[in-house]
Nucleic acid binder design. Structure first.
Length: 489
RNA sequence: GUGGCUGUCGCCUAGCGGUUAAGGCACCAGAUUGUGGAUCUGGAUAUCGCGGGUUCGAAUCCCGUCAGCCACCCCA
């Protein structure tokens, strides 16, 4: 009885057709990060539990998603797999900041693990590509973060994408002005869903407490709240029918309809180019926090434009809030145009104090993370990954009746000249060998039959066009092949 | 973690209570013993995700379980 070869939920194997573009993309990111002066570091996949959960005070969500690891005979609950690269980085910085000095810019690429329910583009093990700058509050570092996102995705040949930018301080100022500053965290969480669930729904959730979906539906129907979205209206009606009636409302009011509307008006009008900040600035003139935020956003835009980042790739989005609590300044979120439902492929922001759990030293920072696996899943679905399953452009045929030393020697010469080459291992029918190369994506085949071998000649076959140049001299092998590859690409 | 939908050869799909589970793509062999992706002919591949139940009889109905997807939650 053989063992079932399947993998556990949310985990997957990566075949060469994905792994090859993935490695290429990874190399591109590394190169880009390094070109901005970010240096690589690595931390363990396994951390002590208290590091990840923040002295047992970790959020319920983190505790729910964390993978505990325990060795046989070891004590349970002491170790866990990292669920992001930021917390280990904070620990790293706290431990090494004195040797490293500030500002310190590092990048880290590696697997992280979350016990989430998998869905499209969501996995339980995925690779994050993080880069952060700690020890400075400069808008230069803020802008550079967005610039690196832009440069990385562009270098990786991602089609049109948009980096949405906001500043938490603007939102905080807005909330103060409206008079709901005491509920910042909750409001931001609800606001973050605007793009996904629409204005009607967000208005409801802003007004009323965190109740179950069904109760919220019931309530909306009972209040005959005007619903402009027909799909939402249908959903609400269905829920009430499903529940067979309405119960007494257990809702707690958080803000008035007027407050919610005002908030949403602001946020929805605050989307677009840098110009959307003008009316916002007027309206929030009283708020010192908002003014700081706006100033920061303007500085970032100026810097990005001066660096040649096109305005079309950037947008201000005051509804962008992010779920995580630790961002305190600018926040970024990047989506591929037309693939917004896939969620963010890169996000990040500024935090006042990264390592406060681990050291008394105050370390402000800014950084972002690119979600490699989600990006690749998206590109695969969009048909943007070339069906290539080889890492070399040249296949050297192993001709029946010719000593294998010939093919072996020629391939070695090609490699020495910097041209990747592979020898077919078995002297089988030459047609089969061509098929192997063709389906795997080799560009050309070098073929030496008995006649050619005798005269030290070779044939060069283009596997895509099936054109073959015959009787070329071995002496010019490297040059001929290099030319053929250069012309083909 | 909650609710819902789905699960049939390697891939996509038909069958939706009744004799050998059908087709396409891919794969293998031959037509074609110095040249592949076309065409033709033939072939192999499925205990219908897994386990249990109902029934004379289950891919088909029910329960459980695993996995995927969707909506929450959260997020890359």
């Amino acid at each position: 009885m053989s063992i079932d070869p399947r993998v556990a939920s949310g985990l997957r194997d990566v075949p060469p057709s994905v792994m090859i573009p993935r490695e290429r993309m990874l190399a591109t990111f590394r190169e880009t990060f390094a070109s901005f002066g970010f240096v690589p570091i690595e931390t363990p996949h396994i951390e002590r539990m208290e590091v990840l959960t923040g002295k047992g005070a970790g959020s319920d969500e983190v505790l729910r998603q964390i993978f505990e690891v325990t060795n046989k005979g070891g004590e349970a609950g002491k170790l866990a797999l990292r669920f992001d690269l930021t917390v280990p980085f904070a620990r790293f910085v706290a431990k090494h900041v004195n040797e490293l000095g500030t500002p310190f810019k590092r990048y880290a690429i590696g697997s992280v693990f979350r016990g989430e329910r998998p869905a499209k583009g969501r996995f339980r093990e995925f690779t994050q590509c993080d880069f952060d700058t700690v020890g400075t509050e400069s808008a230069v570092a803020d802008a550079e973060t967005a610039q690196v996102i832009y440069a990385s995705l562009t270098a990786a040949k991602i089609p049109a994408f948009t980096i949405a930018i906001n500043n938490r301080k603007v939102l905080n100022g807005l909330l103060e002005t409206i008079g709901v500053a005491d509920q910042t965290a909750r409001v931001l969480r609800v606001l973050d869903k605007l793009a996904k669930i629409g204005r009607d729904r967000v208005a409801l959730e802003l007004q009323y407490a965190e109740v179950s979906e069904n109760l919220l539906d019931q309530f909306a129907a009972a209040q005959r709240i005007e619903v402009t979205n027909p799909q939402l209206a249908q959903e609400l009606a269905d829920s009430v029918e499903r529940l067979g009636g309405l119960n007494e409302s257990p809702f707690q009011t958080f803000m008035s309809r007027e407050q919610a509307d005002r908030l949403l008006d602001f946020v929805t009008s605050g989307r677009g180019g840098i110009d959307v900040l003008v009316p916002v600035e007027t309206a929030l003139r009283e708020s010192e926090s908002a003014m700081k935020g706006i100033e920061n956003l303007r500085a970032i835009f100026d810097l990005l434009i001066s660096a040649g980042v096109p305005e079309s790739a950037l947008k201000i989005d005051l509804s962008l809030a992010r779920g995580l609590d630790y961002y305190t300044g600018v926040v970024f979120e990047t989506t591929v145009n037309g693939w917004e439902q896939y969620g963010s492929i890169s996000s990040g922001g500024r935090y006042d104090n990264l390592a406060s759990l681990f050291t008394d030293r105050r370390l402000p920072g800014v950084g972002a993370s690119i979600g490699l696996d989600r990006l690749l899943a998206l590109m695969e679905e969009a048909g943007l990954l070339k069906g290539q399953s080889t890492t070399v452009p040249v296949l050297v045929a192993n001709f029946p009746g010719v000593a294998p030393t010939v093919a072996f020697g020629l391939a070695a010469r090609l490699r020495k000249a910097g041209i990747g080459a592979e020898v077919f291992p078995d002297p089988i029918q030459i047609g089969k060998q061509m098929g192997y190369g063709s389906t795997r994506g080799h560009k050309v085949a070098v073929i030496v039959g008995p006649d050619e071998a005798e005269k030290e000649l070779f044939n060069l076959r283009d596997l895509a066009t099936r054109q073959e140049r015959k009787a070329l001299p071995w002496a010019e092998l490297e040059r001929t092949v290099a030319e053929a590859l250069g012309a083909g690409s």
